[in-house]
Design a protein around this nucleic acid. Sequence first.
DNA 1: TATTGTTATACTCTATAACTATA
DNA 2: TATAGTTATAGAGTATAACAATA
Lengths: 157, 157
Amino acid sequence: MDQSETMPQTDVMGSVLDTFVGYNLKRAYMIVDSDFRAVMADKALSPRVFSALTLIARVPNLTQSDLSRRLGIERSGLVAIVDHLEGNGYVRRVPVPRDRRVHALCATDKGIALHQEAVALVRAHEDRLLSTFSDSERQQLISLLQRIRNISEKDEA
Amino acid sequence: MDQSETMPQTDVMGSVLDTFVGYNLKRAYMIVDSDFRAVMADKALSPRVFSALTLIARVPNLTQSDLSRRLGIERSGLVAIVDHLEGNGYVRRVPVPRDRRVHALCATDKGIALHQEAVALVRAHEDRLLSTFSDSERQQLISLLQRIRNISEKDEA
DNA sequence: TATTGTTATACTCTATAACTATA
DNA sequence: TATAGTTATAGAGTATAACAATA
């Protein structure tokens, strides 16, 4: 009788958990996320605020609904983010005459400046954290992660 | 004068965000995490409870401190997880005579059975979600993610 | 003194539902 | 009716600090 059918193997060093993509994804995500927060703490930019500012700075006249779709978060969750950016003078909610329900999100000069500083800081943070990765390995990782992102876009369509 | 020095490029299709490892990591993580939760909902196993049960089932006589170090979460956060597993009869906190501070965590037969079902379900969930990945691509992704995990272990040491 | 498990607490991110004002 | 922005609320997950029991 094969014991493996009735009993899980004990694993002392390499855990079964390490064979799951999801577990490795989470652990890696938490490391990168936590380093990001440490680096950006004095700019008061969390990952989500950074992402929002980046899109607002680079895509003119985004609406909040556009932005929520792009970032994959709910409209309701975006309100606090835009409040924060507007409260610190990085972004303005500009009324749109042809549809008075929507606000166009426009980065101020101060917002553009912060965006540029922030991108440089985030690049430096990733360069340092991933200093043992070759350019090709880093690109490979990004491609594989984008494959996962694309799977879910297919499901939605 | 080079405009790229003073103005960020606008990006309409592929965003700068897509060039950051962290952003892709987060988006991919959220997709896998959300699919995991949907699949495991009727077993009431969140990712963290699944991970805890898996280690408890496979590593005999773990203490909570051991487990928290293995999972990379605080001891305080583990209490609710073990409470949940113990409350449902999957795990017992067994007193250890030689050190009365610690509890050995032991999976019950019911816990072992759930663990085995759960591992099969999680494997199926990843096989389905990553069905466009070859075995080698999947292993490559895991290896790259483990490289990130190892970076941080180095920092801790 | 240090460690184990625990409690209390708070913060971030996220989601859902319902509201309002427009269209 | 449907959509944009908003509010209220709740639920995970995480972290920090402090405590009692024990080493």
